[in-house]
Design a binder for these strands. Structure first.
Length: 342
DNA sequence: AATGCGGGGCA
DNA sequence: TGCCCAGCATT
């Protein structure tokens, strides 16, 4: 029923498919690594991270034996840091719980931390040839356009429907190759800014026929972004800087951070707030930065202070060793500023 | 079902 | 400069 569509897609992929390092292997460990790195991340950005991880941890055993902070250090700058933590949890689970044998089917894979429906399908198909159709953003976009479906892709019911369609499209094709093909097609041709004039599926595309390509995939409006105002205090003494480790349940969970006061609005910190930090004289921020996250905007002010009241959880980190601890991109930007001008 | 988690690309 | 992208876990 979808033979023509499938053949057109596979034909396009044979000629135009990208030559990516994780496509040269059927090692489930390397495929897993690549898929986790590529979650919510463009190939171009993830590529150097993949190379560094494979280089440093050639097998799941190497990864299982690594220190968490070393892994987070390698992950620095990639975002969504729970991916890195889950990577290590799962490596240890595989080495300890499965005797080093990588789980070899979808059902077993999705039991693991950090492996959901998409990543489970990807590993099952690419490494083990299991007939699971992947459903990522690319595939959602392609299906919604080719069949001109206006369902909200955020809805669970839509996921179920689209998963069924993707499985039908996969049909009897090689599941690994077909999944690569449809994702590459979504990334290179049927992209957010599609190249319809060069599309190999143009004659099959209902959205192109109906003129609704731009409205596909359909998704509900995003909620407004939240503004947060962070007043940071930095204190450098004896080549050390005072930091603390953030809690879980908020941004930058368990990452090192500078002492701070948070406000809900743009007003300056009160003298009471400052007193609590052991700061007697309010100063002007030495550095300001705005940091965009998906659902919030961080407004950061950095104040140089002569001393800080030491509190539980505070720790002193040698500036020379700063690169070996995990901290956010915002702080990386600030440290670049701070230590480049002396 | 709704929300939180980050980066980079792009108009 | 502000919007867009769209896997997984948690609640």
């Amino acid at each position: 029923m979808y033979d023509q569509l499938r053949n057109a897609l596979m034909g396009w992929y044979r000629v135009n498919g990208r030559n990516l390092p994780w496509r040269q292997t059927r090692d489930p460990y390397k495929i897993w690594l690549s898929e986790v790195i590529l979650q919510q991340t463009r190939v171009q950005q993830g590529l150097p991270y993949y190379e560094r991880f494979v280089d440093k941890y050639p097998t799941v055993v190497h990864l299982a034996h690594a220190e968490e902070e070393e892994i987070l250090g390698l992950w620095k700058g990639l975002g969504y840091y729970t991916r890195a933590r889950n990577l290590q949890k799962t490596a240890r689970e595989i080495v300890r719980g499965h005797g080093g044998a990588f789980p070899d089917n979808y059902q077993a894979l999705v039991m693991l931390k950090g492996i959901g429906p998409y990543t489970g399908s990807a590993i099952a198909a690419f490494a083990f040839g299991e007939a699971k159709a992947v459903l990522d953003g690319n595939v959602l976009r392609v299906i919604s356009r080719v069949l001109n479906l206006g369902e909200d892709i955020a809805k669970a019911s839509t996921r179920v429907h689209f998963q069924q369609i993707a499985t039908e499209w996969l049909g009897t094709a090689d599941p690994g190759v077909f999944n690569q093909a449809i994702m590459d097609f979504g990334a290179l041709v049927c992209s957010p800014k599609p190249i319809c004039p060069q599309c190999p599926l143009a004659e099959h595309c209902a959205a192109l026929r109906e003129g609704t390509v731009k409205q596909r995939p359909q998704k509900a409006k995003r909620p407004a972004k939240r503004n947060r105002y962070l007043h940071y205090f930095y204190h450098v003494e004896n080549e050390c800087i005072t930091m603390w480790k953030r809690d879980t349940g908020d941004i930058w969970a368990q990452m090192f951070d500078l002492p701070l006061i948070e406000k809900m609005d743009a007003s300056p910190p009160s003298s009471l707030d400052l007193g609590h930090m052991g700061i007697t004289s309010p100063t002007m921020p030495a550095y300001r930065a705005k940091h965009q996250l998906t659902h919030q905007t961080i407004h950061a002010n950095f104040y140089l202070v002569p001393k800080l009241t030491y509190r539980p959880g505070y720790t002193s980190i040698e500036i020379a060793k700063l690169d070996s601890v995990p901290y956010s991109q915002l702080l990386a930007t600030f440290f670049d500023y701070l230590f480049s001008k002396d």
